[in-house]
Design a protein around this nucleic acid. Structure first.
Length: 604
DNA sequence: TTAGGGTTAG
């Protein structure tokens, strides 16, 4: 008798096994094409709702930054379990969408499922992105009640969340760290990292010295602290002393030297690194770019491409941002050309960075072309473009874009209003600006913050409405800062209101006693009034605080080289012909009514 | 748990 052989089952089982194997390899990879293919196969076998495959697909898609696809997979599952919810929450956290993570939590609880310790650890990560102290405290109370604090991952995540909530949070973290029964190296490292980020370097070092054992992460955290604080002697001493240096250690110290302006030292370390990745290339290129050293930045960028490092969002955004900061249009365009040549798929972030770079470098048409061509604009795209137009005096165009933005369904936020108010200032629309300032809270529900007050005070001041500007400063619900007083100084000088200016400068000197420019403006006002006694007293005050007057400088980029000039500067090799051109320009300007302004301040 | 990174007034 012939026994019927099962035909379908083994095929099915082997397909499943094969898929399981394939997926276990792939779910850490970020290749969307591969993942989509696998998803199609899984779908063909009707396994998309399988509780083994679905979480892996969700994780895969989230790593590829495809939240919509991840959510879609989740929705296919009829009865999701805690594990699946955790995958979805992890996906939201990974894609910096903390609100999505919390929504998933509410739905999960609504469906009668209890979050476990993993859920809470993930939610705490989501809290990190939100920097919400209240939320961290709420979760703290809950995990304590549920007994999840016993799992060391949970208190460690709590410390991390607390640390990201500012100084108050670091205090809470410190309390928890002190009472923790068991601490592992992660607890120590996280606590030290939190202190470092809060600029509590001395306390961080105390804990670092107190640690039972240190790993590379512990050393790197301290290196980061000293590098960011500009204490490069100590940072370098630690770097030399430490064992088990890794690429992060090298990059951290290189970053520190770049920020301190010690590019030679940064370069020596960079050239001697045992291995390089995109992060350290980015660090050194941006180091050069931020210092305006366009040639070095460009040659290193080309070297990086020759070495075979592929572009990623990190490099592109960092370098473009540095270009915008220093006005290095050449490097920015070169990078843009690389993006186009390699067919790099621009994310919205990269698009925004390009818009910002071109706008800041004064190439508004290019910024507009990129902006108009962007398929997925977000709020930042609109804000960057509005700000770009406003910055260059195109107030009307900026406001038009603001209307278009609203028409397309985007709700303006605090940054949008900074752009809008700035547009009104530069275009001289004083009343319009005041209208928007008043409307932002009542019509748009956006809180008026000190930055917005700053814009309006600047707007009033430049518009010559000094009385109103001062009235607004006095009625502000917050303490005016140096920026507010600074814009008033500008206004007072524009409108020759020396009595007001003196009052304002005294506030400024109190707030920023080491900033020489305040002293020099004050002394120039006294000088203009012929009050030489006061001039002498300001100079004395400057000397006693050890403040020196820095010279103002203008710079221009030409053939990938930034040329810097100061007042009466003759150091440029082509100085003679430059002055010839300036004299020529003055000859043309005088007949049409422009005269050079040479006050005591300029000549002092 | 450690390194680079998009919009913010003068």
């Amino acid at each position: 008798m012939q026994i019927p052989l099962p035909v379908r089952a083994p095929t099915w089982v082997s397909t499943r096994r094969l898929l399981e194997q394939k997926l276990s390899d792939i779910f850490k990879c970020t290749d969307l094409k591969q993942l989509k293919q696998l998803h199609a196969v899984i779908y063909k076998h009707d396994l998309q709702a399988d509780l083994y495959f679905a979480p892996k697909l969700i994780t895969g898609f989230s790593l590829c930054r495809q939240m919509a696809l991840a959510v879609n997979v989740f929705k296919q599952v009829q009865e999701p379990n805690v594990h699946l919810y955790n995958s979805l929450i992890r996906a939201y956290v990974h894609n910096s969408q903390p609100s999505g993570a919390f929504c998933a939590l509410f739905v999960m609880q609504y469906r009668g499922l209890w979050p476990d310790n993993f859920t809470y650890a993930l939610l705490l990560k989501a809290c990190c992105g939100m920097s919400e102290l209240r939320l961290a405290r709420m979760i703290h109370a809950q995990v304590e009640k549920l007994g999840f604090l016993a799992d060391i991952v949970v208190p460690n995540s709590l410390i991390d969340s607390y640390c990201k909530c500012g100084l108050l949070g670091v205090g809470e973290a410190r309390k928890l760290f002190t009472v923790m029964g068991e601490r592992d190296i992660v607890s120590w490292n996280t606590m030290i990292g939190g202190l470092v980020k809060a600029n509590e370097l001395i306390e961080a070092r105390r804990l670092f010295d107190e640690m039972p054992d240190r790993d590379t992460v512990s050393w790197n955290t301290m290196l980061d602290g000293y590098s960011k604080a500009g204490e490069m002697d100590t940072a370098f001493e630690l770097f030399q002393k430490m064992a088990g240096r890794n690429i992060v250690s090298w990059t951290t110290v290189i970053y520190g030297f770049c920020k301190a302006g010690e590019m030679e030292m940064a370069r020596i370390l960079f050239d001697n690194m045992p291995a390089k990745n995109t992060v350290c290339w980015t660090t050194i290129i941006c180091g050069y770019a931020e210092k305006g050293l366009a040639k070095d930045a460009l040659s290193l960028f080309e070297k990086m491409e020759d070495t075979g490092f592929k572009l990623d969002d990190g490099i592109i955004i960092s370098i473009l941002s540095a270009c915008g900061e220093s006005g290095l249009l050449g490097l920015g365009r070169r990078l843009h050309a690389s993006i186009q040549r390699t067919g790099y798929k621009c994310s919205t972030h990269v698009g925004n960075a390009l818009v910002d770079m071109y706008a800041k470098c004064g190439s508004l048409n290019r910024a507009l072309t990129i902006f108009n061509g962007m398929a997925n604009k977000d709020l930042v795209s609109w804000n960057s473009m509005i700000q770009g137009l406003a910055m260059h005096g195109y107030g009307e165009k900026a406001l038009k874009l603001f209307y278009r933005m609203k028409q397309e369904g985007f709700a303006p936020d605090r940054v949008t209003f900074i752009g809008v108010l700035c547009a009104c200032t530069h275009a001289g629309f004083v009343d319009k600006g005041i209208h928007y300032f008043n409307a932002m809270e009542t019509e748009y529900g956006v809180l008026q913050e000190i930055e917005h007050y700053g814009c309006v005070i600047d707007l009033l001041g430049r518009g010559g409405r000094l009385e109103e500007a001062f009235r607004l400063v006095r009625s502000m619900p917050m303490e005016p800062n140096a920026i507010i007083w600074g814009s008033l100084v500008v206004a007072c000088r524009m409108h020759n209101a020396s009595e007001y200016a003196k009052e304002v400068l005294h506030h400024l000197i109190k707030l920023e006693p080491t900033d020489a420019s305040h002293f020099s403006i004050l002394s120039s006002i006294h000088a203009a009034e012929g009050d030489w006694n006061s001039v002498a007293s300001v100079r004395m005050q400057m000397k006693s605080t050890g403040t020196q007057k820095p010279s103002g400088a203008s710079s221009i980029e030409l053939d990938d080289q930034v040329h810097e000039f100061t007042v009466l500067d003759k150091s440029h090799p082509k100085s003679d012909s430059i002055y010839e051109v300036i004299d020529g320009l003055s000859l043309h300007l005088k007949p049409v009514g422009y005269f050079p302004k040479a006050t005591a301040e300029v000549l002092s």
